[in-house]
């Protein structure tokens, strides 16, 4: 494990750039915006394709059904907002107008998790995965970095089902293997190991590569990027857990309703009971901080907490 400082990059920029590129080839790509054009890096798109950039103002419920109506007319619609608002304010509209009506809308939501550190509790969305993964017809993806964001956006732009893609505010470390391709329902083993499976989604998974504790140096960690939260890659996950017998799930989300819960369910249904630790926010709201690492430490989902969890699970 190297001490080299990782390159940082923006998942939002990756999204905006990819969509711009795809829109030049695919005239059916539409954006429905709720006045977050610049934040979602869509200013270029709006300028280049004014007819395909639909600005709804800060009215998420209307925007969501507008997106569904456009999709019903054959468009591939990207509904772009922050996760604190979409899927929060508009959840019933997502359920009925998008999911039940099975409309081809991609919900792109930035500013997820405690990574929105400075904004405080109302803008640190920790419940979005719970809200969307429960919905029939909905696929749920959480890219670990900007490279994977590009790959996920390219894939969902060509699929025909409702999907949710979770993005974050800050620039985050690049660690997805460029050579890997993203497939719906497929997880990636980013590092092979045999002692402990560490599984997570989003930029927080990078902390698994930052364990530099001397006493743990001999441990062999298997690190799995579970960006396809729904559908889950049960094959890869079960195979790894069967091998290691120890599983730590880490996520910047509430414990309740998060990926960890989905994994625990998967394990139980397959009669597996490995040693299991779920590192996630435990029934609390967030708060402002200058650096997200302060929050990760406070809510016990940072590198310190992961190090303790590894020690505990191996003992």
């Amino acid at each position: 494990m190297s001490n080299k400082k990782p390159t940082l990059s923006s998942t939002r920029q990756a999204f905006g750039d990819t969509l711009n590129l795809m829109a030049s080839k695919n005239k059916n790509i539409f954006v429905v915006s709720v006045d977050l054009k610049s934040s979602l890096k869509l200013s270029k798109f709006a300028k280049k394709y004014p007819n395909r950039f639909i600005e709804c103002g800060v009215a998420e419920q209307n925007a969501t059904a507008i997106a569904a109506g456009l999709a019903k007319s054959g468009k591939t619609v990207f509904l772009c907002s922050y996760s604190s608002f979409s899927p929060a304010i508009n959840w019933a509209v997502i359920k009925q107008s998008i999911c039940y009506n099975n409309c081809n809308v991609k919900i792109i939501s930035a500013h997820s998790g405690l990574l929105t550190s400075a904004y405080g509790a109302t803008h640190q969305m920790l419940e979005d995965i719970a809200l969307v993964r429960v919905l029939p017809n909905m696929e749920v993806f959480s890219p670990c970095d900007a490279i994977e964001t590009k790959k996920i956006i390219s894939v969902v732009a060509n699929s025909k089902t409702p999907a949710y893609v979770r993005l974050v505010r800050p620039d985050t470390p690049l660690f997805f293997d460029k050579k890997l391709s993203f497939t719906i329902g497929k997880s990636h083993v980013l590092k092979k190991g045999k002692d402990i499976t560490i599984l997570g989604h989003g930029p927080i998974l990078h902390s698994a590569f930052q364990i530099h504790n001397q006493s743990l140096a001999k441990l062999s960690l298997e690190i799995i990027n579970c960006s396809s939260i729904k559908p889950l890659d049960s094959k890869t996950i079960l195979k790894s857990v069967k091998k290691t017998g120890r599983l730590i799930v880490i996520e910047d989300h509430q414990k309740i309703g998060g990926l960890g819960e989905a994994i625990a369910h998967l394990l139980l249904e397959n009669n597996l009971s490995p040693k299991f630790i779920h590192l996630a926010v435990d029934n609390q709201f967030g708060q402002s901080a200058r650096h997200c690492q302060e929050l990760y430490d406070y809510y016990n989902i940072g590198i310190k907490a992961l190090t303790s969890a590894i020690k505990k699970i191996i003992s």
């Binding site: 109506g69 456009l70 019933a92 107008s97």
Partner: peptide, 12 residues
């Protein structure tokens, strides 16, 4: 929700 959905259809 219906009027928003209808507006989406009409806009398309």
């Amino acid at each position: 929700q219906g009027l928003s959905f209808a507006s989406g259809l009409a806009l398309a």
